Simulated scan of single mutants.
Amino acid sequence: MIGQIIEKEHVIDYKIVPAEVDKTHSLQDKLLAAQRLGNEFKSKTTIVFQTEDGPKRIETTVWSLTERYIQIKSGVLIPLRSIIEVDY
Rank of each mutant, 00 (worst) to 15 (best):
M1T: 12
I2G: 14
I2E: 15
I2C: 10
I2Y: 12
G3C: 05
G3R: 05
Q4Y: 10
I5E: 11
E7M: 06
E7K: 14
K8W: 10
K8V: 11
E9L: 12
H10T: 15
H10P: 03
V11Q: 04
V11W: 01
I12L: 07
I12A: 12
I12G: 08
D13Y: 07
D13C: 11
Y14F: 14
K15L: 09
I16V: 14
I16M: 14
I16H: 10
V17M: 02
A19T: 04
A19I: 02
E20R: 12
V21M: 08
D22P: 07
K23P: 03
K23C: 09
T24K: 13
T24H: 01
S26H: 06
Q28H: 13
Q28V: 04
Q28Y: 08
D29H: 10
D29Y: 02
L31D: 04
L31Y: 00
L31C: 01
A33N: 14
A33R: 09
A33G: 08
A34S: 13
A34P: 06
R36K: 13
L37I: 08
G38I: 01
G38Q: 03
G38A: 06
G38V: 01
E40K: 13
E40Y: 14
E40C: 07
E40P: 03
E40S: 12
K42H: 13
K42L: 13
K42D: 11
K42P: 01
K42V: 07
K42F: 15
S43P: 04
S43N: 14
K44E: 12
K44H: 08
K44Q: 15
K44R: 14
T45N: 05
T46N: 06
I47F: 04
I47L: 07
F49L: 01
F49I: 04
Q50C: 06
T51P: 07
E52R: 13
E52L: 15
E52Y: 06
D53C: 09
D53Y: 08
G54W: 00
P55K: 00
P55W: 03
P55G: 01
K56S: 04
R57V: 02
R57M: 03
I58F: 00
I58N: 05
I58R: 00
E59M: 09
T60Q: 01
T61E: 07
T61N: 02
T61M: 05
T61P: 01
V62R: 03
V62H: 02
W63C: 07
W63D: 11
S64T: 06
S64F: 02
S64E: 03
S64W: 04
L65A: 00
L65S: 04
T66Y: 02
T66Q: 05
T66N: 00
E67Y: 05
Y69I: 08
I70L: 00
I70E: 00
I70V: 10
Q71Y: 11
Q71I: 08
I72M: 05
S74Q: 13
S74G: 06
S74A: 15
G75Y: 11
G75R: 13
G75I: 11
V76H: 10
V76T: 15
L77C: 15
L77T: 11
I78A: 05
I78K: 03
P79K: 07
L80S: 02
S82M: 08
I84A: 02
V86A: 06
D87V: 02
D87S: 11
D87P: 04
D87R: 09
Y88E: 03
